[in-house]
Design a protein around this nucleic acid. Structure first.
Lengths: 136, 136
DNA sequence: GCTTGACCTAGAGTTAACTATAAGCCTTAA
DNA sequence: TTAAGGCTTATAGTTAACTCTAGGTCAAGC
């Protein structure tokens, strides 16, 4: 069975070895085994789990909450409902973030137009008396 | 002309007065005037500018870079191109964030399904030998 | 056998973005 | 005229998520 060293995993997941050790210290990787001399030995399934952790991080979840999830995973079937609820909550959260980004994008695009027009005119003075722009 | 105190602005923009003073200290609000006794006095146009600042923050722009933009604004027409370029860059950045969120959402939705199925079965053992899940 | 390089831990340092405190100044209502 | 409430500054503290350093172990190649 193929295994990986910490620096291979770091490369693969675009993280640093510092970050991986930090995650371990925070209890995010209780599943990673060691060689007889104490080096971390990552399995394929550990890589998968780390990808899920990265995904949860991408939703904006703080590490302490990710740790709760990992703990639930270790507890087995008894925590299936909590974990399901957590992912539903994450889903709602990501939807809200997307909506916020869409609104942000609207303003940014408006500004792009604003500056495009100003650049063509050579000045933004044209907007200074423009009530519409003032409300943006 | 209607003006606002710092706490009115904080309420309006869902920020704290601490945050507003911090922004001021960081040079994000050189336009805000003062009363004779030294209190900040916000105009409508200051609120608009703060909303643009909030928008830039929502794109993930660090405060120091927002300060650069504010400085450019003070320098007038000579910096129109820089400001335009900056907004184009922000736009690309937000698009990338949206794409990343979409990918994240796919994984989260997959996980929601996973747990829904596991809950219905009462166990996640059904997945333990499932090669497909291991690669997620 | 000894050097090199990758790994280990514990713990200190960094950074961004707040968040709070202390001490003090105006204005206003009792 | 004095007490309260909202403002001011300077500065210290907090938090999350790293990021780095020091000092050490271990396995492989010369």
């Amino acid at each position: 069975m193929k295994t990986y060293t910490i620096s291979e995993v770091a490369k693969e997941l675009n993280l640093t070895v510092y970050t991986l050790r930090y995650y371990d210290k925070e209890g995010l990787m209780p599943f990673v085994e060691r060689t007889p001399s104490g080096n971390r030995l990552f399995k394929e399934s550990d890589l998968s789990a780390l990808k899920v952790i990265e995904c949860l991080k991408a939703t904006g979840m703080p590490i302490k909450e990710i740790k709760n999830f990992i703990d639930w995973c270790s507890e087995g079937d008894a925590t299936l409902q909590q974990r399901y609820d957590m992912f539903l909550e994450r889903k709602a959260n990501v939807e809200a973030q997307m909506e916020e980004l869409r609104k942000t994008m609207e303003v940014i695009e408006h500004k792009c137009l604003y500056y495009k027009t100003a650049l063509e005119a050579g000045t933004e003075e044209i907007y200074k008396k423009d009530i519409i722009e003032i409300n943006n």
